[in-house]
Nucleic acid binder design. Structure first.
Lengths: 146, 146
DNA sequence: TAAAATTAAATTGTATCAAATCATAATTTC
DNA sequence: GAAATTATGATTTGATACAATTTAATTTTA
């Protein structure tokens, strides 16, 4: 007994809704900071490891350059990152944090910690079970896992 | 012991990635049909119940008129739906399927049934557990559940 | 019942996303 | 080893997503 098309359609709709609703929760808080949710994701990657190339950021977030290029230009316009075209291979663009970009980390973490109380009433088992089965699904869908 | 901000950030990133990857799987199949994923969602709602108003579709999919108005105009341009302004209340626009719009249902279902084999290797328990915890999260996030 | 409040959809502006395109580099083929 | 092919990285393009504003119509209320 396998999954039906109906099951998959329902699953994808719920994932889609939940993803958008959860992003909205983040976005409401992030409004205090000049970052959108995807921009925050990119900054989070860079805070962990600075000086990545565009494609490396894309791999970590499953985003392609068509999404990242305008986003990174926006982050550059805010002076949070520098875009440096590689001299060795001019196809590549390296992304480096500026001082203001680095400074944003603490403020962002403080703001986002405000989300926690909102989720206090949500069963922790439910969260960890969601996490586990999401990882399964991601492994299954991830092109790299071939 | 409650959820930490890190937990929530990881959860939201996984939801976001899984949602986009699963939508891509649908989109790849839907390419055979002149529908994008959000357009398909709207058609699915209408196949289940024809003649809904714009706001009713928006409630079912958590989408607002800024998203739906252009999308519905696109579906109308493809001659899959008719947009009919209500005579009783001229603020409302009713959406009705055309014959081509109705005919699309079977073809779409046939195409999407091709997804099932791809998920055969995925544990069904994992899917149903994902479904359950997603519903929990949706209830928690859904503004209506206040 | 006229003014105020509410409601529904459309419009506007900003920001994603993914597919197609473009440009450059690496590889193959002869 | 030059031309053709393939691969790779980024940019452009078309279609959402959503907040904020506007327009128009209905309902409330004083």
């Amino acid at each position: 007994m396998s999954v039906s098309s109906e099951d998959l359609q329902g699953l994808s709709l719920d994932l889609y809704s939940a993803s958008r609703l959860l992003i909205q929760s983040f976005q409401n808080l992030l409004n205090e900071i000049p970052l959108t949710y995807p921009q925050f994701l990119v900054m989070r990657v860079l805070w962990e490891r600075d000086g990545l190339y565009v494609n490396q950021i894309g791999e970590k977030l499953h985003l392609d350059s068509g999404t990242l290029t305008p986003l990174l230009k926006k982050l550059e316009a805010h002076n949070f990152v520098k875009r440096i075209r590689s001299e060795k291979d001019e196809r590549k663009v390296k992304i480096e944090l500026t001082f203001p970009g680095k400074s944003l980390q603490k403020k962002t973490q403080d703001v986002l910690s405000q989300l926690e109380p909102i989720f206090e009433t949500l069963d922790e088992k439910s969260i960890s079970s969601l996490n586990t089965s999401l990882k399964d699904l991601l492994d299954h869908l991830n092109p790299k896992s071939k």
